[in-house]
C-alpha cells in the first residue's frame, strides 16, 4: 500500500501541509472558511528537529502500522483498518477517550481541537491525492509504496 513519506532534507517547515490538511478535512473545503469558521485539527504536524548546525523539520503523520496499537487500544471500535490497509477513525463511534493518542508510538494521532474526537491521517482517501502531498511547495512529502520509498532513502 502507498503511504505518505516525509523527507527531512527537503522539508522547509513552512506549515503549508497543515493548512491544506485542515482545508481538506473541513466541511467547506475552502481554506479561508475552514480556518475562520471551522475548528479543525491537522492530521499532519511539522516537528522541529534541533540539529547541531541548523533547525531541521519533518512532517509527521500516521504510519498506518501493520499491527496498529491504536486499534487495539480503542475502547469504542472507532479505530479500524480498512480493506486497503489504511487506519481510519469513524468519527460517529469515537468517544474521545484518547487511548489511541496515548499508545501511538509516533505521536501521529492528535486530540481534536474540540476535544470530542481525534485527528489522524486518512491519506485523504475520500478526496484524491493527499492534500499535503499535492501542495508541498518543495516536494518534501510524497505518496509512495514501500519499494519507491526504499529507493529514495
Amino acid at each position: 500500500m502507498k503511504k505518505i513519506y516525509a523527507f527531512e532534507s527537503k522539508c522547509l517547515g513552512c506549515g503549508l501541509c497543515e493548512v491544506y490538511c485542515r482545508a481538506a478535512h473541513s466541511k467547506s473545503k475552502d481554506i479561508i472558511k475552514a480556518h475562520k469558521r471551522e475548528n479543525i485539527t491537522s492530521a499532519i504536524v511539522i516537528e522541529e528537529i534541533l540539529q547541531p548546525k541548523a533547525v531541521s523539520y519533518f512532517a509527521l503523520q500516521c504510519r498506518h502500522c501493520s499491527d496498529p496499537k491504536c486499534i487495539k487500544a480503542c475502547i469504542s471500535g472507532a479505530m479500524y483498518k480498512d480493506e486497503d490497509g489504511i487506519v481510519r477513525n469513524k468519527k460517529e463511534k469515537c468517544v474521545g477517550c484518547l487511548s489511541c493518542v496515548l499508545v501511538c508510538p509516533f505521536g501521529a494521532v492528535r486530540k481534536s481541537a474540540d476535544g470530542k474526537t481525534v485527528a489522524k491521517c486518512d491519506l485523504c482517501i475520500d478526496y484524491g491525492l493527499p492534500a499535503c502531498v499535492d501542495n508541498c511547495p518543495n516536494e518534501a512529502i510524497k505518496l509512495l509504496d514501500d519499494k519507491e520509498a526504499e529507493a529514495l532513502k
Binding site: 522547509l12 513552512c14 506549515g15 503549508l16 481554506i31 479561508i32
Partner: peptide, 10 residues
Amino acid sequence: CIQCKVCSRQ
C-alpha cells in the same frame, strides 16, 4: 489571512 504563519516562517 488565516494566521497560518507561513509568511513569518518563510
